[in-house]
Design a protein around this nucleic acid. Sequence first.
DNA 1: CTATAAATGTTATGTTATAACATATCAATA
DNA 2: TATTGATATGTTATAACATAACATTTATAG
Lengths: 158, 158
Amino acid sequence: MQNVFAPHDHANCTHSALTTVERACAERGLRLTPIRKRTLEILLEGHHALGAYDVLQKLSDDGLADKPPMAYRALNFLVEHGFAHRVERLNAYIACTHPDADHTPALWICLDCHKVAETVQAAELGQRLGQEGGFSINTLTIEAEGSCQQCRDESSND
Amino acid sequence: MQNVFAPHDHANCTHSALTTVERACAERGLRLTPIRKRTLEILLEGHHALGAYDVLQKLSDDGLADKPPMAYRALNFLVEHGFAHRVERLNAYIACTHPDADHTPALWICLDCHKVAETVQAAELGQRLGQEGGFSINTLTIEAEGSCQQCRDESSND
DNA sequence: CTATAAATGTTATGTTATAACATATCAATA
DNA sequence: TATTGATATGTTATAACATAACATTTATAG
Ligand SMILES: [Zn+2]
Ligand SMILES: [Zn+2]
Ligand SMILES: [Zn+2]
Ligand SMILES: [Zn+2]
């Protein structure tokens, strides 16, 4: 999925992410337990970032988990293996939209529709920046807040 | 100051930042009140990020402030006007090392010495990334965790 | 089977941040 | 210089985010 801000077949979006993650877990010997799978499904419900306690509430509604550590463990599992991303600016989490690739995403947070998109072209860019000062990058966070094309188009149609 | 990871005349570092901020406040009609000034001085004590409650403790030691909102207000003032930066990855704050320039910094967090450096060459880079998807950037966060040249040099001298 | 590791369940608490409202101080101007 | 409106500070309370520590259960390998 390229542009989550634009209208798209989100059922397909969800389904392909889920099957990709299931395959990746099988290949890598990771256990996509019920809590973990449901947590991913919850994040996949939309392209909005959810806080850990939002996720926990939904897990609790499903009778799967009802204590903060349970949600954090599932979210951390997904993040560690690249199936979800933490949005630092929002203290929140999104499902990854290309969970097959080993990647460092740049995140685009629309302040209008509140969707969060990601692009993967950002990593080498950071590496270049860092080399200037001899800094060796372990992890790189790139997040932008602003407005997506769709929201700007809509607001100009007033 | 370019490379805060390397040994440098930090007294000068502190002094020049403080006088630059004082001048900027005078020019822009901003009030660098005692709490705000002391908060800046606290951040300037080193190139380490401090949490709001660390700052609050120091303000409290000085009898200047003793409730969370006081520290957050002072920190927010400094951040809003570009005199300090919030480090999203650390939920913490650093004094800006070039408070004269209107800038979007990239932050370099050394996991070894825990110093945080900033560079200003990053903004246009983000703009370029964003334009690809038609995203209009309001604020941009670029933060890297890793190891600085000095720390890597030292650890290879074992 | 059983030993081991991994995951989950649970309690408690730590950490970060803000809403809401009261009071004081500053700065412009009548 | 008194009024006043804006800005900053003081205060209470609570919201929101996150993890330490330990017990129990479940999965997997030998
Ligand atoms: Zn979708
Ligand atoms: Zn949008
Ligand atoms: Zn310095
Ligand atoms: Zn270092």
